[in-house]
């Protein structure tokens, strides 16, 4: 709940755009500006935005690959142990260690491990689930595109504190063609 007595903490400044083209153009300029902490909000996936934001490629595929091959190895080890050592049975006159019969399971377990790993890695890299933040404006899930320039976190060491002026950031976004700008305050748990 929002406490009445505390003054609200500024989390950033947001600028709204009407179409994805102007958002991409503005984003590229924000990327090249002094503001390093910023994020974009769009109602749907916009192709090319990741380049404008200067995002590095996702590391999810490496997790998928590593876990998929772990799945292959696990399936083989498991079946080998089960049918050769733990419970040896003669089935269809085949040897205990029958690689061809193991392959479908090895494939399936690669897919299962890879799939689950992809999902979990995606959540982890996106720091999800995140219950502490809420959508600051419903229009970004409907028809508007937004760039949010975040105010740097209050530094707790003696490094030079970054000057952040909300007015300056708002003016900057306006100069990039934002139709509307405003400050966003932290609201904590809702």
């Amino acid at each position: 709940m929002h406490k009445e007595n505390e003054s609200p903490v500024l989390s950033g400044v947001v600028g709204f755009f009407d179409d994805p083209e102007s958002l991409i153009e503005a984003t590229a300029k924000v990327r090249d500006s002094e503001y390093k902490d910023f994020d974009c909000f769009t109602p749907y996936a916009v192709h090319g935005l990741e380049h404008a934001q200067g995002l590095a490629r996702s590391k999810v595929p490496y997790v998928t690959g590593a876990l998929a091959f772990t799945g292959t190895a696990t399936a083989f080890a498991w079946q080998y142990a089960a049918s050769k050592t733990w419970w040896p049975h003669i089935i269809g006159g085949k040897p205990f260690n029958s690689l061809p019969a193991f392959v479908p399971i090895m494939f399936e377990l690669s897919v299962l491990f890879g799939g689950i790993a992809t999902f979990l890695a995606m959540l982890a890299f996106n720091r999800l689930p995140n219950l502490s933040k809420r959508s600051f404006d419903p229009s970004i899930t409907n028809n508007r595109f937004a760039i949010m320039i975040e105010s740097p976190p209050a530094s707790d060491d003696d490094e030079t504190p970054v000057e952040f002026s909300a007015e300056k950031a708002e003016a900057f976004l306006k100069s990039l063609g934002a139709k509307d700008t405003r400050k966003v305050f932290e609201e904590g748990w809702f």
Partner: peptide, 12 residues
Amino acid sequence: GFSQYMLIWYAN
């Protein structure tokens, strides 16, 4: 290739 092989190997 493997599907062809495995079914033949299995059915014998």
